[in-house]
Design a protein around this nucleic acid. Structure first.
Lengths: 234, 234
DNA sequence: TCACGTCCTTAAGATGCCGTAAAGATGCAG
DNA sequence: CTGCATCTTTACGGCATCTTAAGGACGTGA
């Protein structure tokens, strides 16, 4: 929508200290910030202003944060970064599965926050401009030709098994986004049960061996402990 | 067709909320929009108005969406973008195999929709302006003369059976693209069922014997396990 | 330090797909 | 009707892929 000059960011946070801290930081870096304190106001603002990105605290006084995500996702693909004071993995995972793009756990550094905002804005602008015709994908030495149905690294064709290719495409189509284990297994196997996680790890291993420069220290596919994986733009 | 000033878009959608949302967005961006709610009306409109692009919801009250695609494709090459609430691969594949050009899953962002519309209109205008396809094809020692209807290897004519020739042409017209088993069998036999895959393998064998330097280690036609085949540019 | 959970890595067994040959079916020309 | 070319079907060995299991590395909290 309004990708013009300054991106508008909707900040949903009931803790006023954090709200001021974050909004100041965003403001200083040239973003326009709307601040709201609860879920209802968040949804209202998202509808009326169509922000370029949403930062959402899960612990809201009125509605459960997950529900806010679900509502917004039903009509919009705007990037949502979740902030959570809770350290339990289950919250993050639920949020990501509901459609969140990224998450931050309190306390977090302002630098990290800004980096994630940049990454998510970049990804969403990519997605809306290339979108379809992006029948190809590039990231560092990696190149995927979706239409042709294969991938290359440094120009040489990779011999990927069907599952490896599916997995790679899934990660590529969600660059810079954390994908949960269950999301990935659902996408690849349809119905997933626990033991697919073991398989997923093995496929991760073989895929990394084929696309990473140093498979023991992966840069392209990063693992998020207890949560899932994420392809990083190089 | 009428590629003049404003492209005409036919919107087939029974959910009035979505219909209004989409048609408003398209209208704002300078497209002329026809709205219909069912498959019968869609086909009628496509016949009488000859739209530049069709947006088709798969879940229609009267006819199955796939059937609408097949009907329209029988006489027109107009770009068709499918909209569906279903996320399963099988639906996408069925729609695309039937002749759809692109696929959107609900919920989708308006920006993405517009991007896809632009991309497909551009592509179709490209296709209609180029129009003149090359009447010959060369790849390494292989040479095909489409107009004359025969192929040569190292200058000597190959004696190919009708089916072998069809198969070769199909692969040649999609060089560097992976063609799925079902796509190939559809193209060659029209309607395909399971056992055609066995035949396909046999034809692959005989074709390779005739065009490959070393049929046991094929270079020109590569197999993608569990997916299909692909002709590689040498 | 120890126990615990998560992830990585490897290897072996099970499964399913592919290539291949050969026999049967079909269609057509003489 | 017979012979030939083409296509289809079947069967099986070999191999790519997937799954499963087990051991080790690493970090975290008691």
């Amino acid at each position: 929508m309004n990708n013009a000059a300054k991106p508008r960011i909707l900040l949903v946070e009931d803790d006023l200290t954090v709200q001021n801290l974050v909004s100041t930081a965003l403001d200083l870096h040239g973003y326009v910030v709307s601040k709201v304190c609860n879920g209802q106001a968040a949804i209202m603002d998202a509808v009326s202003h169509g922000p370029s990105l949403i930062m959402l605290d899960l612990g809201l006084p009125d509605i459960d944060g997950i529900e806010v995500i679900t509502k917004i996702r039903s009509w919009s693909a705007v990037p949502i970064i979740v902030i959570s004071a809770r350290t339990e993995d289950s919250d993050k995972i639920a949020a990501l599965d509901a459609g969140a793009d990224d998450y931050l756990t309190k306390p977090f550094s302002v630098d990290e926050l800004l980096a994630r905002v940049r990454a998510n804005l970049r990804r969403s602008s990519m997605a809306s401009s290339e979108s379809t015709e992006a029948s190809t994908f590039d990231n560092g030495p990696l190149h995927i030709d979706y239409a042709a149905g294969y991938a290359t690294k440094d120009g040489r064709e990779l011999s990927l098994t069907p599952t490896e290719y599916k997995l790679l495409v899934l990660l590529a189509k969600n660059v810079d986004k954390v994908l949960t284990h269950t999301f990935i297994t659902h996408e690849i196997w349809g119905t997933s049960w626990d033991s697919d996680l073991a398989s997923l790890r093995v496929f991760m291993r073989t895929l990394r061996k084929k696309i990473e420069a140093d498979p023991s220290h992966p840069k392209m596919i990063q693992t998020h402990m207890g949560v899932g994986y994420r392809m990083q733009r190089l």
